[in-house]
Design a protein around this nucleic acid. Structure first.
Length: 137
DNA sequence: GCCAACGTTGGC
DNA sequence: GCCAACGTTGGC
């Protein structure tokens, strides 16, 4: 089992929207590093849902329900998508500033590579964020 | 609104 | 293959 984090600007696609939709195709990724992370996702992997620009916090946990396939919104198979479903909302969202201040989290790819829209999360980081959020899966 | 970080493009 | 110019993302 691997862990990930995806970013979305909430006014484009929010956590609440994902909850309403029940599932979504995670499209629009146009960066090779992010795409490679998408392609490494396996069914059942857990994915933090982060609100960028507005909120700047992790708000929920999604789950991979379909592994990568070609992005149907563009020609060719250069770009990929996966399907996600909402799994659990965090009891307390975890803000970027909290993450930066936390010794166990300050090395997260989210912090190190702030522009990357799909990043990987270690198990330790995942567990620490769960702890901070007061959430049990 | 600014700017740092980073990715991409294109001339050489 | 290098690097300058430019565009985009995203935090502040």
């Amino acid at each position: 089992m691997n862990y990930w984090l995806v970013k979305s600007e909430p006014f484009k696609y929010s956590w609440n929207q994902l909850r309403q939709d029940k599932r979504t195709m995670w499209d629009g990724v146009r960066n090779y590093t992010a795409r490679n992370n998408l392609r490494a996702m396996k069914n059942g992997d857990l994915v933090f849902f982060y609100h960028s620009n507005d909120g700047l916090e992790i708000v929920g946990i999604a789950r991979v329900i379909k592994e990568y396939y070609p992005d149907p919104t563009v020609d060719g198979d250069t770009w990929s998508v996966v399907d996600l479903e909402p799994l659990k909302e965090l009891k307390k969202s975890v803000t970027l500033s909290t993450i930066k201040q936390n010794e166990k989290l300050s090395q997260m790819q989210l912090v190190k590579q702030s522009r990357l829209s799909v990043s990987s999360v270690t198990k330790k980081e995942f567990d620490e964020i769960l702890r901070l959020s007061g959430t049990v899966i």
